[in-house]
Computed example of a mutant assay.
Amino acid sequence: MRKFISKIVVILLVVIAVLFSKNIIRYYFPLKYSNYVVKYSQEYNLDPHFVMAVIKTESNFNPNVRSSKNAVGLMQITPDTAGWAAREMNIGNFNYGMLNDPKFNIMMGCWYLNNLNREFNGNKKLVLAAYNGGRGNVQKWLKDSQHSTDGKNLYYIPFKETDKYIKRVEVNYKVYKYLYLKIDTGTFSQ
């Protein structure tokens, strides 16, 4: 009986440790702005875990961050991309200050990810490479045998920053999928 109780105690301690560690990890991988992420992920046919991973990587959920390349907000959208996207989205009253609004920034970022997703046939690595390094660069790399053997996949990304970016988003995506398994009624279930 003593061995049985010891095993139960060990199992309970392991379960508590796993649950506690998940809660600690959730602190570093929050679900900020999840209402907007869920709404626009659904509208633009994206996995909300993927969008969360992009936001985590781009801004760490700081809506006021501005990059050295003048990218703005949660999803770090550059003014050039925002102006083009606003025209494509038929947003007639667009101004760059709108990028500071988390709801607008997530909406435009999701639209842009969806646009890249369609262009690159759902290949997430290419979508991320284009989101970070520019779609024109990705198209050029796909045509170059030093970067792609089949014109559809990249095996070498010449921009180290873009290569690291893709890897960080992929890790963040796996963490979000692990921590928040599914979406129920507009929120992530734990």
Rank of each mutant, 00 (worst) to 15 (best):
I11S: 07
L12D: 08
L12F: 15
L12E: 03
L13R: 03
L13D: 02
L13E: 00
V14M: 05
I16L: 08
I16T: 06
I16R: 05
A17T: 07
A17H: 06
L19Y: 02
L19N: 06
L19I: 06
F20V: 04
F20N: 01
S21R: 05
K22I: 04
K22R: 09
N23R: 00
I24P: 00
Y27C: 03
Y28R: 01
F29Y: 15
F29H: 07
F29W: 05
P30H: 10
P30S: 14
P30I: 09
L31M: 10
L31R: 09
L31K: 12
L31P: 00
K32R: 13
K32G: 09
K32D: 13
Y33H: 14
Y33G: 11
Y33L: 06
S34N: 09
S34I: 01
S34Y: 00
S34F: 02
N35P: 07
Y36P: 13
Y36S: 15
Y36T: 09
Y36G: 10
Y36E: 13
V38A: 05
V38S: 12
V38E: 11
K39H: 03
K39A: 13
K39R: 15
Y40W: 12
Y40H: 11
Q42Y: 12
Q42M: 12
Q42S: 13
Y44H: 10
Y44V: 08
Y44D: 01
N45H: 14
L46D: 01
L46T: 04
L46C: 06
D47P: 11
H49N: 13
F50A: 11
F50Q: 06
V51L: 01
V51M: 10
M52T: 11
A53E: 02
A53M: 02
A53C: 06
V54M: 10
I55P: 08
K56D: 06
K56W: 12
T57F: 05
E58K: 08
E58S: 06
E58D: 00
E58V: 02
S59N: 10
S59W: 05
S59H: 11
N60Q: 00
N60V: 02
N60I: 03
F61T: 04
F61N: 04
F61H: 01
N62H: 07
N64V: 02
N64Q: 12
N64A: 13
V65Y: 02
V65N: 07
S67N: 10
S68F: 13
K69M: 11
K69F: 13
K69G: 03
A71D: 13
V72D: 01
V72R: 04
L74M: 09
L74Y: 09
M75K: 02
M75T: 06
Q76M: 09
Q76P: 12
T78H: 03
D80A: 14
D80V: 13
T81K: 07
G83A: 11
G83F: 09
G83M: 13
A85N: 12
A86H: 09
A86G: 08
R87P: 03
E88F: 07
E88P: 04
E88G: 05
M89Y: 14
M89T: 11
N90S: 14
N90P: 07
N90V: 10
I91A: 08
G92L: 07
G92S: 03
N93P: 01
N93T: 15
F94D: 01
F94E: 06
F94Y: 14
N95Y: 10
Y96L: 15
G97Y: 14
G97D: 15
M98D: 13
M98T: 02
